[in-house]
Write a protein that binds this DNA or RNA. Structure first.
Length: 109
DNA sequence: CTAATGACTCGAT
DNA sequence: AATCGAGCCATTA
């Protein structure tokens, strides 16, 4: 196994502070839009297997829990986010922008 | 090798 | 403003 695109995504997702969330596009952009936001989501699919990767902190640019259905249960993702102090309504994060964590800005190249 | 799909995003109609 | 389509790259069949 060599370092794949996933590995980089894992690193970024793992670096997401508690109670904060980010978007696929943000991660993709941080990695240089390498592959676009789609690959990020794909990487999360593999990350979902890695328990060390808080995939529940990754949502689409709308702040919607698009990948909640991929968890063990659709409630898992929302539950985890609410557990961190986030508010979810209709699978949408409230004050999403307020909890938005931009790797390109926080990690600041 | 070609074809199809995927947890997205942007641009055009 | 809302809806539809195409583009991006990687993995799987």
């Amino acid at each position: 196994m060599e370092k794949n695109f996933f590995q980089e995504v894992y690193e970024v997702v793992k670096l997401i502070p508690e109670g904060q969330v980010t978007t696929y596009g943000a991660i993709a952009q941080y990695l240089g839009t390498k592959g676009g936001a789609r690959m990020v989501g794909w990487a999360m699919n593999a990350a979902h297997t890695e328990k060390d990767v808080p995939a529940h902190r990754v949502v689409n640019r709308n702040g919607q829990l698009t990948g909640k259905h991929f968890f063990e249960t659709p409630e898992t993702m929302q539950n985890l986010l609410e557990n961190e102090g986030l508010k979810i309504v209709n699978d949408q994060i409230q004050d999403f922008q307020k909890h938005f964590w931009n790797p390109s800005e926080k990690l600041a190249l």
